[in-house]
Amino acid sequence: MSGWWRSEFTAAAGTRMHAGVLGPPVATDVVCVHGLGCSHRYFLPFARRLAPAARVAAPDLPGFGRTRGPREALDVRGLSLALADWLRATARGGALLVGNSGGCQVIVDLAVHAPQLLGPVVLNGPTVDRHTRSPLRQLLRTFANSRLERPTLNLVIARDYVDCGPRRLRATFYHLLGDRIERKLHHVRTPAVVVRGSRDLIVSRPWAEEVVAALPDGRLAEVPGAGHALNYSAPDELARITRLLLEETATSS
């Protein structure tokens, strides 16, 4: 748990869900939702930047990081149900949610069956672009994008991939690939910011604009020169965007 203030284990979703927590206990809650094969670990740079203004919690969804999962990999609905159970159990319903990549799909699916648990949302690199929904194209784009991230991110993700195992990783990849996020975006009725790095090879600007257009209350923010995992490779910029949304929603409430 190096860098995180503490580990938090909560009985939820039929397991003990782990979360890394960083920030003052009295600060506003922000919940981070990880992408394919990842865990709380790659949210640490972002959490460090945001912690003075928020209490950041990054749960490991079942089967990832330090949370044990069922034998069979959960699909997107299963992951969003697990997130919903954890939000209820930890009394974090209504917190601002920050997703990266596949984590954005989990957040959007959460809006379908438990909209009352959503606060404002930051969708960093929302997948899957419906125009490139093929395993080969997604894998090629992912490998190409890895050159644009901080080199140490590959070490963090490699550890997470070992934790979840190749079988779960592959099954979850196909679950995410088959999830039609574009059909569910209208359920997100809280203020939403779609964020992408200007060099993101996984999420194109036209796709990000399409996502924004489908959101009832969405806008686009682009980080110049950055890739896909802004929470790790451009944490200052993502924290600035998140703080601005926190301030805006606090003022309007």
Rank of each mutant, 00 (worst) to 15 (best):
L50M: 09
L50R: 04
L50T: 11
A51E: 08
P52L: 10
P52I: 11
P52D: 03
A53E: 15
A53W: 15
A54F: 04
A54L: 09
V56I: 12
A57M: 15
A58R: 07
A58M: 10
P59Q: 08
L61Q: 12
F64Y: 13
F64W: 13
R66V: 00
R66S: 10
T67A: 04
R68V: 05
R68Y: 00
G69E: 00
P70N: 06
P70E: 12
R71Y: 09
R71N: 12
L74D: 06
D75M: 01
D75T: 02
R77F: 09
G78D: 04
L79Y: 13
L79S: 10
S80D: 01
S80Y: 03
S80W: 00
S80K: 01
L81D: 09
A84V: 05
A84Y: 05
D85H: 08
R88P: 00
A89P: 03
A89W: 02
T90A: 12
T90M: 05
A91H: 15
G93Y: 01
G93L: 01
G94A: 05
G94Q: 04
G94I: 01
G94P: 00
A95P: 01
L96G: 04
L96A: 09
L96H: 02
L97G: 09
L97I: 06
V98Q: 04
G99L: 02
N100F: 12
N100C: 15
N100H: 14
N100T: 15
S101E: 07
G102I: 07
G102R: 07
G103V: 10
C104F: 05
C104K: 01
C104S: 07
Q105H: 01
Q105P: 04
V106S: 10
V106R: 07
V106L: 12
I107C: 08
I107V: 12
D109A: 07
D109C: 02
D109H: 06
D109I: 02
D109R: 10
L110I: 10
L110N: 08
V112P: 00
V112M: 09
H113I: 11
A114P: 00
P115M: 05
P115V: 07
P115G: 03
P115H: 06
Q116G: 11
L117T: 06
L117S: 08
L117F: 09
L118S: 03
G119M: 05
V121M: 13
V121D: 11
L123Q: 06
L123V: 14
N124V: 13
N124K: 11
G125M: 13
G125I: 03
T127H: 06
V128Y: 10
V128D: 07
V128R: 11
D129V: 09
R130I: 13
R130K: 14
R130W: 15
R130L: 14
R130V: 14
T132M: 14
R133Q: 06
R133A: 12
R133V: 02
S134M: 07
S134H: 10
P135R: 11
L136T: 14
L136E: 15
R137K: 15
L139Y: 13
L139N: 13
